[in-house]
Structures are given as C-alpha cells and as structure tokens.
Design a protein around this nucleic acid. Structure first.
Length: 234
DNA sequence: AATAGTACCAACCGCCCATTG
DNA sequence: TCAATGGGCGGTTGGTACTAT
C-alpha cells in the first residue's frame, strides 16, 4: 500500500507563480496569520496549487523577512564552516542566517561555493584536500588555465579565509556549546502574537514590506482584499 | 546573427519523521 | 501499537539569462 500523494494533482497549476497568485497567497496570510494546515491554504486562498507549493512559495520567496541579494564573503565563509560541521543539512545551516532560505543556500553552495572549493583542491563533501590522480590532475590543470571566474588572487584570499575559519572553529564550537545549535529561525508568525516584542517587530516589518510592495507593484483590479472577496471558487 | 554551452535559481519530487487518532 | 497524515527536508529538474564560438 503506497502512500497517498500530498494532494490531488489533477487540475492543479504548476510552474512559475504569477503576480496574481502571489497576491492571493500573501493576502491570505496577511489576513489569517498562522495556518496550521498548509493543505487547506490553496483552497481557502483561492489558489489552484498544492499546499506544499504554497508553503514553498511563501518560505522561499514571499516571506517579508527575506534577505535579498548575493551572499557576502563572510556569509560564504560561515556557510563553508557550517557545512563542514553539519553536511548537507541546509535547513540547519539556513537557521544561522536569518533572512536566508535553505533553498537559497543550497543553490549558492551548488553553483558557487562547490566550484571554489574544488579550485582550492578541497573536496566539497569532506572539506579535505583531494587526492589527485593523473587524470584529474590534467583535467584540473586545463580548467585552471582556462578558468577566469576565480582569479589566483581571489583563490589565495579564500585560502587565507579558510585558515582563519579553521582558527575560528574552536571559538565557534565554544559558542555553540553555550547556544542551542538546533535553534531554528521560524518563518511562521501570528498577528495575535504581537505582544511578543519579536513578533511585534516581525509584524512591523511585514507592514513596512506590504507598504513597500504596494508602492512598487501595480496592484491591478484583479487583486481583491480577502475580506471583500467573500466567495471563493467552490 | 545564429547556435551551443554554461550559470543560476525557482520550483517540483519523493522520502523521512513526528504527530495523531 | 500501528497506520494515516502532513510538514519539512534534500536532491533534482527545467526554464531563462548570459556568454562564447
């Protein structure tokens, strides 16, 4: 007996989200705060998406507390450090970067950091120097002479940083000893919980974000506030 | 200008695990 | 105790933009 699919995929929309869908989802979340059951969200928000898709969209893209833009060098260094300790546990790694998502970090690792480590002669999995066979030596020589995206100076800087990072490891471990390593940054919030200063801050940033987006997006006539939109599709 | 190759990232898939009845 | 369920997670894919030939 196999497991039931997370949702009935028949008739559900897939692929990139439209602005209208984003609006519907945001609108629903702004009006309802926390939602214990993602499965019901698409139905209640009037979306033809599965609950998982809504959750992902919110967490990875719509959350008001998301930090946009490329990773700084110090962030990269910390990712490398954390990866050496935690492996591919991206959500754990992401919990150390408020505003960054596990998906974002995973993508950055796979597209940028992995390459940099390889060019440094480090195994991205073990973080240890790679034993070079004749075959991959030649291949690496070729790619190194061809490669221009990481100049020698930069590679040297990364080496220095990594050494510093290793020096920091001890301090970091001490630090982790005094904090809960499993501390996880949670994206869920509730308007009702705004007595909590942190929640209030989050709510405040949410409002600021809404104002900001409001001014940037041309909220067309299709965007109907939830309170006014009493009739959801059956 | 056209085509091929590469990089990037949003989104999906399927498995795992905690919770619930 | 166990099966069903839903959320979370990591791996992978597919589309798009950019670059090289």
């Amino acid at each position: 007996m196999g497991r039931k699919p997370c949702c009935d995929k028949v008739g559900l929309k897939r692929g990139p989200w439209t602005i209208e869908e984003d609006c519907k989802l945001m609108n629903f979340i702004f009006n309802n705060g926390t939602f214990p059951c993602w499965r019901n969200v698409p139905k209640l928000a009037g979306l033809l998406r599965c609950g998982k898709s809504c959750r992902l969209r919110w967490i990875n893209y719509l959350r008001p507390d998301l930090k946009r833009g490329s990773f700084t060098e110090s962030e990269e260094d910390e990712i490398i450090l954390l990866h050496s300790r935690l492996g591919n546990r991206w959500s754990k790694i992401a919990s150390h970067f408020p505003g960054r998502t596990d998906n974002e970090i995973k993508n950055h690792w796979n597209t940028k950091i992995k390459k940099k480590l390889k060019q440094l002669g480090l195994d991205p999995v073990t973080h240890k120097p790679v034993e070079k066979t004749d075959g991959n030596k030649k291949q690496e020589e070729r790619s190194e002479t061809k490669s221009e995206d990481v100049p020698c100076k930069e590679v040297e800087e990364i080496r220095v940083t990594l050494n510093e990072t290793n020096d920091l490891l001890k301090d970091y471990e001490m630090l982790c000893g005094s904090f809960d390593l499993d501390y996880s940054y949670t994206s869920s919030f509730s308007m009702e919980e705004s007595n909590n200063p942190l929640m209030a801050q989050e709510e405040n940033s949410l409002k600021q974000w809404v104002d900001c987006v409001d001014s940037l997006l041309s909220w067309d006539d299709n965007f109907i506030p939830l309170q006014e939109e009493n009739s959801f599709p059956p």
